[in-house]
Write a protein that binds this DNA or RNA. Structure first.
Length: 479
RNA sequence: GGCGCGGUCGCCAAGUGGUAAGGCAAGGGUCUGCAAAACCCUUAACGGCGGUUCGAUUCCGCCCCGCGCCUCCA
């Protein structure tokens, strides 16, 4: 196995990954703000986090992974008020939707899902700790963090504070702050707004404090890995560092990893451009969850991903190729014994796969390793050289591959159904299809091709593709 | 302006100081009652100009182009 190398935003370099405790990784990943349905850009990041998580597990690390759900912020408060709901009720729907989406994309559950509103006391404690060290100052009922007190401010995002002036763009906060860059740890309640009554006064948490408080509560004062979208590097993660390290005097996270953003057809995704998509939008158009997962996951995470419908179709077909191969392996009848060289060929696939992912999670390379093996094995099968004795080891490789990529299982229809999308062909059950296939086979035997073709057409119209094999067997699949 | 990502075949996307993976598409085959599906094969690419070098797509410089962050957006 290759040494795992990860790109660390903190150092700006790709470094060997060595966790604090051998064999164990403590990871915190920034999750969604549940004010609305998350969009495909969010899921690009979440799929990246999932690939990272799965790869580390594959390499034998025990994972302690925490992902947060931000369920209190300005938008949530505003939207909930507009809907006449309390924020817990308002966010519940989007929390559920997020969990559903994760299931659809085969994003594994972390060891802990944590919600900001469940951890107000932890945040209050952390703020008190900062107060004790005079990193804070009050202003009209709010509590601010004094950035000038933290010498390393800017070390993550490489922002140089000296050049920054409190200009019109920056100084738009209506609260009193000493310096434009200072941020709120605790916000005083506005009239009619939801607030918590606490030892540091009534109010609600600032954006950044939740992650510091929750990460340290579950993972200790120094994390191994902290990740999120690239836009979070500043100010969110920078502020997390300032808060946490001021409070503990220890490094907050050792490896910071940031996923680049996703573009849509080469443009920034935005509601105004009409190129803004949630998973629901894509599933309603008939795209498969597995295709979206591959589409979002196969571009290395530090590259901007240009999402296009053409690309999604390509991913759909790529998934098909892999699944077709798995089926061929499963259903094929091969001569007994082992093919010379096949074990070595499979070993090479493992090596290439591992090298790809070990190199800063290069998913494109790992994927190519699988496709290379697929092609070579297909050639061997076509030539009649493939042997039954190699089936199991190729299957083992595929399942190894799929422990990270998670696209091989043919369960898209079930997933969509679980989400409430009945795909066009959902009306036809397996038994019904088998019956029609049998009828067609009978017709073919009687050389009644008109009937056989009529059934074939009927099935095709309902999204069922038939595959007539050489030996007369028929395999079918849903489009 | 500062910081960052990128410009490789029609499209997506790896990679290397000695002329370049993989996927999709296209074309051609195998198979088939015909087809489809599946599988195989083939084609074709390194933004521009300099520099370093025996040799650069790969290193350096400049330029052009796309995109992001610079206070609450993954």
């Amino acid at each position: 196995m290759a040494e795992i190398q990860l790109h660390n935003t903190l150092s700006g370099k790709t470094e060997p990954f060595v966790p604090q405790e051998p064999g164990e990784v403590r990871m915190y990943t920034c999750g969604p703000t549940v004010y609305d349905y998350a969009h495909i850009g969010n899921y690009r990041t979440f799929v990246f986090q999932d690939l990272l998580r799965r790869f580390l597990k594959l390499r034998g690390f025990k994972l302690k992974h925490v992902m947060n759900l931000t369920d209190v912020d300005d938008r949530i408060i505003a939207n909930a008020a507009a809907a006449g709901k309390n924020i817990r009720d308002y966010t519940e729907k989007f929390v559920q939707a997020f969990f559903d989406d994760c299931k659809a994309l085969s994003i594994e559950a972390p060891e802990h899902w944590v919600r900001a509103t469940d951890h107000i006391p932890d945040m209050v404690q952390l703020i008190q700790k900062l107060q004790g060290k005079t990193f804070t100052y009050p202003g009209e009922g709010s509590i601010y963090y004094r950035i000038t007190k933290f010498p390393n401010y800017g070390k993550l995002s490489k922002i140089d504070l000296t050049g920054i002036q409190a200009g019109a763009r920056v100084d738009n906060d209506r609260y009193e702050k000493e310096s434009a860059r200072d941020f709120a740890l605790w916000k005083a309640p506005k009239p009619g707004e939801h607030f918590w009554e606490t030892a540091i006064g009534p109010g609600r948490p600032g954006w950044h404090i939740e992650c510091s408080a929750m990460a340290m509560k579950y993972l200790g004062e120094t994390l191994d890995i902290h990740t999120g979208g690239i836009d979070l590097a500043f100010p969110h993660h920078e502020n997390e560092i300032a808060q946490s390290e001021a409070a503990t005097g220890k490094p907050f996270a050792r490896y910071w990893m940031h996923a680049e953003h996703l573009l849509v057809e080469g443009e920034k995704m935005s509601k105004s451009l009409g190129n803004f998509f949630t998973l629901r939008d894509l599933f309603a158009k008939g795209y498969k969850p597995s295709a979206l997962r591959l589409c979002l996951g196969s571009t290395p995470y530090r590259r901007q991903l240009n999402f296009t419908f053409n690309g999604l179709t390509q991913a759909t077909n790529s998934v098909e190729r892999l699944r077709n191969f798995a089926d061929r392996l499963q259903q094929g009848k091969f001569p007994a014994g082992k093919q010379e060289g096949m074990s070595a060929r499979i070993f090479k696939a493992y090596v290439d796969f591992d090298h790809g992912l070990s190199d800063d999670l290069n998913a494109a390379r790992a994927l190519a390793a699988a496709f290379d093996l697929v092609r070579d094995a297909n050639i061997a099968m076509d030539k009649g050289e493939f042997r039954q004795g190699d089936v199991a080891s190729v299957q083992q490789f595929l399942s190894f591959f799929d422990r990270v990529f998670a696209v091989l299982e043919d369960n898209d229809a079930q997933k969509l159904q679980a989400l409430g999308y009945s795909s066009a062909q959902a009306g036809l059950g397996d038994a019904e299809i088998e019956k029609l296939v049998a009828e067609r086979n009978a017709a073919k035997k009687n050389r009644d091709f008109a009937t056989a073709d009529r059934i074939r057409k009927e099935l095709a119209d309902r999204g069922i593709i038939l595959e007539d094999a050489k030996d007369g067997t028929v395999r079918w699949k849903r489009k």
